[in-house]
């Protein structure tokens, strides 16, 4: 397993969030993610885990606390937010590919428009990435013509094409048919082995056991337990963790 460095990529301190309807979604969450580290966030639905990782690239705002991503503090300054989003890739549960663009165009859109890189160079890189996730031959198709697993692999390649320093995964396999989960996890496993910094919200115990450096359990908007996978799955220290594990194992 690739060893994380001491450099801090994400540092969240005392993050609190209320939804407009008054619901207290995050109740003082702390988390530190180091460069090259794979952190898996688990927890029952409604525990705030998706909301939490969506604050890292400002898809969700928060009212109290602080988050520093790659040395930049998240603030309301839009230029800072755009700068952070360029360095933080995100993979969604529903893929969110652009249905009106071909697979290749899905990959090249942001590097060309945001990073202003030459088209030919980006396309070369896009083909290489599609090769890496095993679907180079689908480059000219449209997302609607691919299976769920293929779409999610395109979505991962799309994020990688921006050469992010951090990748966030928001339940990447939850809307896939069981036989397609494996191909997506395989891609994620390879990314982890290459040293990508990853924060993954997932229910895939096998993936967490094998790939994660650390597993975090969230419940009711708080971090309940934070441990290496071996300890987390065999000898958790909190009662709430034991309850959760009893339900999913």
């Amino acid at each position: 397993m690739n060893q994380p460095s001491a450099e801090c990529m994400i540092e969240a301190r005392g993050v609190q969030k209320w939804y407009p309807n008054g619901f207290h979604a995050l109740r003082g969450v702390d988390l530190t993610v180091h460069r090259g580290e794979v952190v898996v966030v688990m927890g029952p639905s409604g525990s705030g885990k998706s909301t939490f990782i969506r604050t890292f690239n400002a898809l969700e705002d928060f009212q109290q606390g602080s988050i520093t991503v790659d040395g930049r503090a998240l603030s309301n300054d839009l230029r800072d937010i755009d700068a952070i989003r360029r360095e933080v890739g995100m993979v969604f549960q529903q893929f969110n590919l652009f249905p009106h663009l071909s697979v290749l165009e899905n990959l090249t859109l942001a590097p060309i428009q945001v990073r202003k890189r030459p088209k030919a160079e980006v396309e070369e890189q896009a083909y290489a990435l599609l090769e890496r996730v095993g679907i180079r031959e689908q480059a000219d198709k449209y997302p609607g013509q691919l299976s769920g697993g293929q779409q999610q692999r395109v979505a991962i390649a799309r994020s990688l094409c921006m050469e992010p320093r951090i990748l966030l995964f928001d339940e990447p396999t939850s809307s896939l048919d069981p036989e397609m989960v494996r191909e997506v996890l395989e891609v994620m496993r390879n990314l982890a082995a290459d040293g990508m910094t990853m924060v993954v919200v997932t229910h895939e115990v096998g993936f967490a056991r094998e790939v994660a450096h650390r597993v975090v359990l969230m419940a009711e908007g708080q971090v309940v337990e934070e441990a290496d996978p071996a300890t987390f799955f065999t000898n958790p220290s909190h009662e709430r963790s034991r309850q959760f594990l009893a339900q999913i194992l």
């Binding site: 969604f92 529903q94 969110n96 652009f98 945001v114 799309r158």
Partner: peptide, 26 residues
């Protein structure tokens, strides 16, 4: 869908770029 805007923004596209390349064509 809202996810289209989120995906575009999370790739670093600005609001006008998101509108022109992702939202309006659809």
């Amino acid at each position: 869908p809202r996810g289209q805007v989120e995906a575009a923004r999370s790739l670093g596209l600005s609001v006008p770029q998101t509108l022109g390349a992702v939202v309006l064509p659809q």
